[in-house]
Each structure stands twice: as C-alpha cells, then as structure tokens.
Design a protein around this nucleic acid. Structure first.
Lengths: 205, 205
DNA sequence: CACCATATTTGGACAATGTCCTAAACTTAC
DNA sequence: GTAAGTTTAGGACATTGTCCAAATATGGTG
C-alpha cells in the first residue's frame, strides 16, 4: 500500500492515540516514531487539532456509509450498530476524549453537530419505520428510547474502557450491542421479539 | 464561614474547574484568582492531581451518604438517583473528565474501583430487594438493567453538557432521572408502575 | 519580651508541550 | 540547467506542572 507523508502521519497518529490517548502523545513522540521532525508534522497539520480533525472526518465518513442505508428489518437495524461500534473501536481515541474535544475544538464540535443531527434523525425515523412495519410498539416512549440509544452509542466505549478493559474488543462490542437489543425487547411485537432473539443468537447467545 | 487556606484553594478550584474544565485551568490562573503564588498552592497540594483527588474524595463522601441508606420503596430508589445527580452537577468537572482521570490518575482510579464496586452492588441488591417486595419482575434482565443504569449514571452529565447545555441543571437532572424511571417501567409490577407514575408526577410530568 | 522551631510564602528554575518561523534541501516543470 | 514551488530541519517562544531554596510569618516557651 502506497502512502504519502500525510497519510503516514495520520496512520501512525491513530495508532499511538488509540494506544495511549490523544492528550498523552506529544507531537515530538509522534515525529520520533515516524523518523521525522516536529516541524515536518506541522507542515501537513498546522496544529494538533487539525490532525485530530482529520481523524474525526475519517470516522465520520465511515459511519455515514452505514447510517445512510435504510434498515430493512429490526435485525438489520441492530446489525448496523454493531458495524458502527466496530468503527468506534478503530477510532476509539476520539470517543474516549469525546467530551474534551467537543468543548475545546471548535471545528470538530461544529462538524459533530451535523453528524449528531443526522444520527438522531436516523434513529427516530428508523424506529418509526420499524413501528409501521410491525416490529415495534412505541407510543410515547419513542423519545425516551432515542435518548437511551444516543447515550449508549456515544459512551459505551468509555464505559467499556473503564470496566471491561481486560476483555477483547469483540467481546466489548458484543456486550453493548446485546444491551441495545435487550433495550428494545419490551417494545417489540411478537415478530420484533423473534428478530431480536435471532439477533442475539447470531451474537452467540 | 471560616475557611483555612487549603479549603479556600479547594473551593475556588472547584468553581473554576466546573466553569472551564480541569485541564483548561492552570495552577497559575487559580493562584492569580486567589491572590497567591503557584508555589503556595503546591505547598498544600504537591501536584494538580492531589487537588483533583481531594475534590473526588469530597464527592465520594457526599454520594456515600446517599447510597448507604436502603431504599424503602421504588419511589425512594429513584429519588436517590436524583440526589446523586445533584451531587454530580456540583462536582461536574470530575465527571466531564472522567475517562481521562481514570486512565491517568492512579490514586483516583484505585479509589474509584472501590466506589464502583459499592455502587454496582448497591444497585444489584436494591433491584433484588425491590423484586422481593413486589415492585419489579426481573428474571434474567437484572444484569442488563444494571449495565444500563451504570452507563447512564456515569455519563448522563457528559451527554447533557453536549446536547442540552442550554438547559438549566435542574432540567437536565429531571430529564435523566425521568429516563431511569421509564427504563424500569417494563419490568415493574402494577404496584411498581404506580410508584413510577407517582415519581414522574413528582417531577412535574 | 526574646528566642526558636515550625509553618507558610515567595520567586525563580526546570523540562516538556504546542505552535511558529526562517533557512536549507529537495522536486518538478519549462 | 534554472526558476518556482514543495518539503524538511532546526530552533525560538510562551505556557504548563513540578520542584526547590531562601525569606517571612506564626506560635509556643524560657
């Protein structure tokens, strides 16, 4: 695989940031690891935030591909979260520093507002459409469920890094996707419950 | 109110950390605000982490008082979370930097493991006892519910700071306590549902 | 009151960090 | 082969948390 300098910097930065946390990897360490000087990094990415923004953009693009598809069933609705969680693991440094980044990095927080709107709308319309197709019965609980889903999707990996760091990434994903599935159970029709059970089985339950 | 120097430092630090974030308030700014020198702060708190640990200890003590009481009913079980959330707001700087602090500050993360165990056990035993007293029917869902509760209690304020910063603290608390209450609804008996409804009414719903 | 031990405060030093800038080296196109 | 643009090197700068030795203040004892 051919990589230009900027791509090499991005790749190594992601690797080191994931390993030790964005705030705890200095540009000088990153430069040393790459065998270049600091000023060389700042040529491609004038500030550290610019480098982080690039990573965020990459993750955003990955997730957008998943969100854009309309889920055909409750099963595929849940499956999508599994894919999103896999992306989250790949860019976990961003999610673990989420709150800080949002409060400090203007560009990122503006960009995320858009992503957030899309995600929120996507969950709302998906839940509605799943109700119309006889998978769910939601009534007044829709907004409540969207809140729980938003919270979980945003912070599952932070929680996992604190409580289940000893487990593999795959097991962590499995745990929190299971959580989302079980969350829907009380609001599912017979047909919906069957799909949730099917999904849980596909996870190895 | 008489405060010695250490208490004055702690009080002003909490104020500034809550306002702008622990990582974005330098000891020099804190010192200037207090009309003293940096070295004077490090006399009482050798490192910034020591200062943060002190705040964490204070919050921990506040919460412990709440957790120790056995809840008499589902209503008082929910009421306790409201009190905990009020403490969280008072010490929000800690919760907003939660992931970082845990990964970087050894003393704090060790101390939190204990707190965490207590909280987990407290939720588990409380849910069991509520089931025995005919408020809930849990079966295999107990662990699942504990996970959702843990995640929500830990990160509600981070989510709120991102999505509902424009609302008052009271409204934010109300929203996420409501969420916890609604979460229990499908697992509540008639008697339990009545108490949840009563609790929601007490919140102004 | 005078003295001394302890507690507190000062002022500055230190290494590390993100950012910035200028000059040198290298590429590319004509 | 030279000129223009791109990339790299090397170092400067202000800021940060931490540390230290000297100066000052405090409080108890003879």
């Amino acid at each position: 695989m051919v990589m230009n300098k900027a791509e090499k910097i991005v790749a190594k930065a992601l690797e080191m940031f994931n390993e030790r946390g964005i705030e705890y990897v200095s540009l000088r360490e990153l430069a040393t690891e790459l065998g270049i000087r600091v000023g060389n990094i700042t040529y491609y990415f004038p500030t550290k935030d610019d480098l982080v923004n690039r990573l965020a953009q990459d993750l955003s693009r990955l997730n957008e591909q998943i969100i854009l598809q309309e889920p055909a069933s409750l099963f595929s609705f849940l499956e999508r979260f599994q894919k999103i969680f896999e992306n989250h693991v790949q860019y976990r440094c961003l999610l673990l520093s989420f709150v800080h980044l949002m409060h400090q990095n203007k560009v990122l927080s503006e960009a995320y507002k858009e992503t957030e709107k899309k995600r929120y709308l996507s969950i709302v319309t998906n839940l509605s459409s799943l109700q119309e197709r006889g998978y769910l019965i939601l009534e007044a609980d829709r907004n409540f469920l969207v809140s729980v889903f938003s919270l979980t999707v945003r912070f599952w990996i932070s929680e996992a890094s604190l409580s289940f760091a000893h487990r593999s990434a795959a097991e962590q994903i499995r745990q929190y996707v299971t959580l989302l599935a079980k969350l829907l159970m009380p609001y599912a029709t017979e047909k919906g419950q069957a799909e949730i059970r099917q999904f849980l089985v596909s996870l190895g339950h």
